[in-house]
Nucleic acid binder design. Sequence first.
DNA 1: CCAAATTCGTGACTTACATCAATCTCAAAA
DNA 2: TTTTGAGATTGATGTAAGTCACGAATTTGG
Lengths: 208, 208
Amino acid sequence: MALFWCFHHKMPGGFTIQTTVLMYRQLRDHIEKISPLTDQEYDLVCAQFEYRKFRKHQYLTQVGEPVKYHYFVLSGLLKLVFTTENGKQHIVSFAAEDWWESDFYAFFTKTMATMSLECIEDTEVLCLSLDGYRYLCATFHKMEHFFLEKANYGFIGAQRRIISSLTSDAKERFEQLQKQYPFLIQRIPKSLIAAYLGVSRETLSRLY
Amino acid sequence: MALFWCFHHKMPGGFTIQTTVLMYRQLRDHIEKISPLTDQEYDLVCAQFEYRKFRKHQYLTQVGEPVKYHYFVLSGLLKLVFTTENGKQHIVSFAAEDWWESDFYAFFTKTMATMSLECIEDTEVLCLSLDGYRYLCATFHKMEHFFLEKANYGFIGAQRRIISSLTSDAKERFEQLQKQYPFLIQRIPKSLIAAYLGVSRETLSRLY
DNA sequence: CCAAATTCGTGACTTACATCAATCTCAAAA
DNA sequence: TTTTGAGATTGATGTAAGTCACGAATTTGG
């Protein structure tokens, strides 16, 4: 039952009983910004998710392995990383609270991951399997609508980033990031910001 | 009635009566690769679209104006262009047959366009208004599913392009484009390819 | 058909950024 | 305390690609 199945999880403050309620509220609030649901509907929605906790530096998915889940981030911070043959890491995106993240191509097509998903901080997520995703979309028109809205805005965001890389130099791209996600600059080592912006950490360091 | 409303359109060969049937089939075939529809359903779907024809160099939407439509390309070729203050044009994407294109942010939020959508060739499109889009999504779960699939793959494609710009130099990006859309290289002036790849036309010219 | 505009290629020079390497700080571990 | 290691900074040098300039080839429109 959705209301009970992560009862054993310990909160930072030592509370246990509140956990599922928090998860419940956070995901529900998030979904209901787009698609309000009845209690019964949300119970069925919630039942498709599995709570998991990861520690800093742990992998949620690794290159070459299947991508079993689409992740909703409850707390913490993730990076989606593409690594080139020469071993250089490039950050495709970050994911903080209330963001969805996965290697989508691998997830949707059931192929092996080409990107790894790793924790920058200790992170709590809700995992949604492909079957669960399909079940939600097929069963609840509202949920398909929700995911469509998310996908549309995800696409728009990705297109913005493409425009940014086409039109702006390193300094401008950094300023745009700083403006859009100021909290990232604080929480993340500069070398990761550089790997996201597509510049070397030395160059980024010289931009101040 | 969906079957009749662009009867007056002239085909290249001089045929007229076939036009609507072709449009009918092309959009229907396209949608039914994802979501099969009954004849009645498709009639209602089709009724939301408006046929239009544009000539090379014409604008479908211009910067600063509202974006009234989401466009489905029947034939021809479009470019979605972002222009910087210094007047340089950057190509956000191309759209050929069976592609969907628009300034999505402006379209969905009813704000003014930040990108222009222009014809590279004479182009036939089917125009879908925001009301039409919402009607289709709200009325037909299948159509919401169709647009979700499109949006997901659109996002994946945009993310691929981001990865390409993070990891590859001009030559590699060109080769990737050539591999993925070989027909574009033939149909489009190299200067536009360059504006898409994010290199100067001189540099692109020297890559061969 | 010719004139005008596009398109493409190439040389000379400049620039933004990468790379390599050496410090420097600071916090956590031993 | 000393040690370690991650992160940030700074300098010297190399290189991919931008910019400016010119001209040839091709396409387009009147």
